[in-house]
Amino acid sequence: MAAPDYVPNETAVADRHYVSPPRRPQPWVADRPAELTDGQPTGDGLGVPGPDQGYALRLARRFEGQMLMAPGEQTADAIAGCVGVALKRAASFGRAPVSADLEVAFRVFGFLPPAPDELLLAWRKELFAGISHPHHYAEARRLAGLVPEAVLRLPPGEVEAACDAVRADLLTRR
């Protein structure tokens, strides 16, 4: 039954749930002070951005029981130093970190079997000392820069063979 004419009928307004905002006549432009208009900046100390980088810390915990630690070395220092290397590897492929990235990083510095030689242990102990402390960010960035990108691009199975030559080069750059 229809309502009489004197009864207000606003059903058309009540049925509308969404109203789009008014159209903007001007296009949006990046004109705020902190906008990156020329893309991601590059240079020393800026790193390589990549997606979901925090996941590398969770993946690193899986390696804690397998790591070869010398007396006086801290697992937290090894993880903090190698996570930067793993993130550099993952970002060079344009993806989030995976276990293979951490495996490569730990193998380069001799934290995974086979056991490293005494020279590498002494160098590594000095290089990784206290690096897990937040004030040692610059040292962690420098450590990530020590590993050549050619080594980072290798599959995990080929890294061990390449590490002997790379380690000798790294040890001479001290």
Rank of each mutant, 00 (worst) to 15 (best):
A105Y: 11
A162L: 08
Y55W: 15
Y137C: 07
R107M: 07
F109P: 01
H135D: 11
D5I: 11
A14E: 02
F109H: 10
R167D: 01
D77T: 02
A76F: 11
G84Y: 08
H136Q: 12
F109E: 01
L127Y: 09
V29Q: 10
R173T: 04
M1P: 13
S132R: 03
T11Q: 13
L121I: 05
E64R: 03
S92Y: 06
G65K: 10
R167F: 02
R23W: 05
Y18D: 05
P4G: 13
R95M: 02
V85F: 05
R141T: 10
R89A: 02
V7P: 10
V104W: 03
A3H: 15
A3F: 05
H133C: 03
G54W: 00
E126A: 14
R142H: 02
T42N: 04
V29D: 12
Y55T: 01
V159K: 08
R95N: 01
L152C: 12
G50K: 00
A70H: 04
D52C: 01
V104Y: 03
A3Q: 14
A150L: 12
R107Y: 01
S99T: 14
D38H: 12
P21A: 05
E103H: 15
P33K: 01
Q66I: 15
P21T: 04
L171N: 02
T42Y: 14
L146M: 11
T172C: 09
G43P: 09
P114M: 12
Y137R: 09
A76V: 05
A60L: 05
A122G: 03
W28V: 08
R61A: 12
F128N: 06
M1N: 05
V166Q: 15
L36F: 00
A122L: 09
D15G: 13
P155G: 06
A60V: 03
L170I: 15
D164Q: 03
L143Y: 08
S20N: 06
V48G: 02
E73R: 10
D31G: 15
A80V: 13
A115I: 10
A80K: 07
I131Y: 06
M69V: 10
P27G: 09
A96K: 05
G72P: 01
H135M: 02
V7T: 05
L68A: 04
A86F: 09
L112K: 10
P116Q: 10
T11N: 04
A161K: 09
D77V: 12
R58N: 01
R24H: 07
L152K: 13
L121M: 14
I131L: 15
P97F: 14
A12Y: 04
L119Y: 10
V151H: 11
A168L: 08
F128E: 15
P116C: 08
K88N: 05
A14F: 03
V159N: 05
L143S: 11
V98Q: 15
A105R: 03
P116R: 02
